[in-house]
């Protein structure tokens, strides 16, 4: 027996959506166990580099300007200065600092970011669907997605309809994701559950299932505009949902915790979690991302520390 709901697809076929119950306390204990991992020396440096590669460097402010976005793109391309790299290159375990996975901006800034990142492999992700609340008519949200895609976004980060979800209208949640996916075409779709508003573990798990069934390429915890944003337990629920979905369907879905991951230590804990829950297969930017802004600089500080043995200070790196 499995608890669950049924969703009707376009073609009239009903798909069952599993509703696995989650025990919050034991979930929390498992999540906490990853924070007890002690990652040292060469493991730490390798993990830090991997984390940098996994960052969706993000700016999502009302105050965003073309100047600000260009600045961010520049940081994405050159996290550290050439001079810095040169200084570090004299140490024996030096390795060139990688670039981040993507830059994440509002739709209006996609063209700017695209231009600033031209010629790099850094992708441009755009939040869409009336981010962060999504409380706008569907047509308008789809238009939002269409605009971002046509402006050149490589990835779309949409929000689910939490209002519909919380009233039990899972069909609407599903249908909307399907429609967004259609508009996206080949553009990668990350589906933001906004777990802070879903409130319960069971809801997070169910929403993950709906999003994956509806065609999400990634599922993502949060907009960063609601507290709590990403947490280890919530990410663990979603990772386990991804693993189960893979084992049932063979489809591989990515995971993006976003918001609240500010330092290298936290990021490494997440990396341990992915490693131990999912196995090394998911330890790639294709399948795991951090939605973050201040995380990058802390990772860079740790690079400096690991390579030189000295603690870095704020001024070692540009703010953004």
């Amino acid at each position: 027996m499995q608890n669950g709901i049924s969703i009707q697809k376009h073609d009239g076929v009903h798909v069952p959506i599993l509703a696995e119950p989650i025990d919050e306390v034991m979930l929390g204990e498992r999540a906490l166990s990853f924070t007890r991992r002690s990652i040292k020396k060469q493991s730490k440096l390798a993990a830090i580099y991997k984390c940098i590669e996994m960052i969706d460097l993000t700016t999502l402010e009302g105050a965003d300007t073309i100047g600000k976005v260009r600045q961010l793109c520049s940081k994405a391309r050159f996290p550290v200065t050439a001079e810095f790299s040169e200084e570090l290159s004299h140490y024996k375990n030096f390795k060139a600092v990688p670039t981040v996975a993507a830059v994440c901006v509002y739709p209006a800034m996609v063209a700017t970011a695209k231009e600033a990142l031209a010629g790099t492999k850094i992708r441009v992700a755009s939040v869409a669907t009336a981010f962060p609340a999504g409380q706008i008519l569907l047509e308008t949200r789809l238009r939002d997605v269409r605009d971002a895609v046509s402006a050149g976004a490589d990835e779309i980060d949409m929000v689910i309809n939490r209002g519909a979800f919380l009233t039990g209208d899972y069909q609407t949640v599903y249908d909307e994701i399907v429609q967004v996916k259609e508009v996206c075409g080949d553009t990668h779709l990350k589906v933001i559950l906004e777990t802070g508003e879903l409130a319960t573990c069971d809801n997070v798990r169910l929403a993950s299932e709906i999003a994956m069934q509806a065609g999400a390429d990634f599922i993502k915890t949060s907009t960063g505009k609601v507290s709590p944003a990403a947490t280890m337990p919530v990410t663990l629920i979603m990772l386990q949902a991804i693993l189960d979905f893979y084992e049932r369907t063979g489809k591989i879905i990515g995971m993006k915790p976003a918001g609240g991951i500010r330092n290298a230590k936290q990021a490494i804990h997440y990396l341990c979690m992915v490693n131990e829950v999912m196995g090394p297969r998911w330890l790639t930017p294709e399948l795991f991302r951090f939605g973050a802004s201040s995380l990058l600089n802390d990772l860079l500080k740790q690079v400096y520390k690991q390579i030189t043995g000295r603690y870095a200070y704020e001024k070692s790196f540009s703010l953004d």
Binding site: I39, K40, S43, K44, P280, R281, L283
Partner: peptide, 10 residues
């Protein structure tokens, strides 16, 4: 060609 996350002795 996969990243192997080994935990160094701690």
């Amino acid at each position: 060609d996969r990243f192997k996350f080994e935990y160094a002795p701690a």
